[in-house]
Nucleic acid binder design. Sequence first.
DNA 1: AGCACGCCGACT
DNA 2: GTCGGCGTGCTC
Length: 734
Amino acid sequence: MPAASATPPHPEFSPGSRIAVLLPLPLAGPYDYRVGPEPVVAGDFVRVPLGNREAVGVVWGAGQGDVAETRLRAIAGRIETAAPLPEPLRALVDWVAAYTLAPPGAVLKMAMSVPAALEPVRGPLLCRLAEPVPELRPSAARAKVLECAAQLPPLTAADLARESGVGPGVVSGLIKAGALIVEPSSLPPAIAQPDTARPGPDLSPDQARAATALRDSLDRGFSVTLLDGVTGSGKTEVYFEAVAAALAAGRQVLVLLPEIALSTQWLDRFSARFGCPPSEWHSELGDARRRDTWRAVAAGRATVVVGARSALFLPFPNLGLIVVDEEHDGAFKQEDGVCYHARDMAVVRARLGAIPVVLASATPALETVANVQAGRYRKLVLPDRHAGAALPTIAAVDLRRHPPPRGRWLGPDLVAALTETAAAGEQAMLYLNRRGYAPLTLCRACGFRLRCPHCTAWLVEHRGAGRLICHHCGYAVRRPDSCPECGSEEGFTACGPGVERVAEEAALLFPDLRQAVMTSDTCGGPAAAAALVGAMAEGRLDLLVGTQIVAKGYHFPRLTLVGVIDADLGLEGGDLRAAERTFQLLSQVAGRAGRAERPGRVLLQTWQPDHPVMRALVAGDRDGFMEREADMRRAALMPPFGRLAALILSGPEPDPLDEFARRMARAAPPAPGIDVLGPAPAPLALLRGRHRRRFLIKAARGVALQPWLRDWLGRVAPAGGIRVQVDVDPTGFQ
DNA sequence: AGCACGCCGACT
DNA sequence: GTCGGCGTGCTC
């Protein structure tokens, strides 16, 4: 493998010495062990005794020595089938653990997510004839073996000897002489290698300039480049050129996408460019594919991996480029377990591996924009849509002046636009970021609202599934016959719209249109999503009604109208990033319209057409909007101009939880530049049957937040089933 | 994460 | 009188 020198050598530890082994468990740190009779190197996977069982861990470095020599136990053995965990990945594990305050072993667990990959390759070793058979001293016994090997399928050495009627020594002699080749019976599945020699598409001058700049960054160590291009500007084609160049240089490439399971169009484009699909990495992968892909990455056989955020922890020995596409997308933030932001950690991984990282977006995150302005990230701009297509026109529809009829959600302007689009034989999309039929159901007699017994949330009616469902814990019930509160059998009223209800209304108004609903529940798997996307792209549908998954990077050439049912939806609930996120989502949805010859238009139904988000969208003033957002955050010393951490306390009973929260508040060590806000009920005060309280910690930019948090958390010990979760740089409202 | 140790309800 | 529930604590 060329350029293997990119990975520094692994320090070796001799037999009998004391080493640190990190186990994929939520322990405070690595455990010390004694090296057995064989030396090991840092990164080696080893089996170690742990209590009365055995665990697999990774040699992390020299022992720390804080455990008595007499308590030290010896390593049970080295796992020989796996290459050592590459140094940059070990460094990333330590970095992420220190930054997120997660136990290092919990982070390592993400890098060892496929235990089966470390098991020895199954199946017996089989012998087959070498081609060509080398010159060797002939003998009758050897001739018999060679004849059998030529005529029979591959056999084990013992079987081959028996079939040939010779002793086992003859066969092993032939193996030693190179006339027989021994291979495991279950060969790793072959992975098609991308063809970098295939010519890429014709690039516009802007695209070509950006592609050249990205290619040039490949052999210059660590760098971060924001690829900032309007929707439909061909960012993918540009970074594909950098991918091709990295592959041609013999390096591996990682592309992170927010929702890989739904990215069939991306996969098609990759195959069209490189002649074969990339390796995929996401949670929907089957066990066998996961295991094979992990091994292929570790062995350097998988050269391009496209994956969700967890792909960041794959054991690339030779990574040369990382791309984070749709870098602004909230799906890159992991909210449970180890809370990390894959975009930011991709930047760290790139720095630790001394390689470039490309962040691509039409609506970059404010954090990224600030990093560009501070000179930490470079920016490449694609100002125009590809192939002469124009950006769609965006108009706000004032629902105060032109409301839909009572109980309806499509206003007269949107209905007129849909009529025109249908008459022109073009496609339309209706966007509402709310799954199900209705977000709230209440009793006709007493007004009681059906709520989840385990969460602070209303039950959402899913009429298609015939259920009321909690979107937070998955609790589902059939619609009750009588009110659980007053017992009335008068029935229930559905309040507010979900996509199902909008689709129902559209079907009523436009019975001739071929329509489909696209949400995470209607397209359960990648195959169903691909089918819907394919039907839309090929014009077998006229109208697509969907949640935010319809916004994700799809290219529907015949789509000219996008209607946003409730543009204000994301603005509720004092979230720091509500405006920014709404702007990004609506820009992304709007960007689906008019991507080919026909111009596109977008109607935003809103109750607040004067809101800065709506004004900016209508005026196409992204940069002005982001500047004003930045000004507000700067004035409030909020991220990225200050730092934020959230502490979520949860427990089975509210009273002990509140008592613990008060104890925590008293224990907070005073420090200049750090403000502790709370405790307060967390935004979901009850989730999955657990009560939740939240602290927000606000710190100045230069303050070392993690040591302070560690100090604080060390002063109080939760008990009675109470758990404390730390989220450094929280993004959602948790 | 496992697995053991340790204190309170329904059984032979 | 025991078998077994899962709460708390330890594993180099």
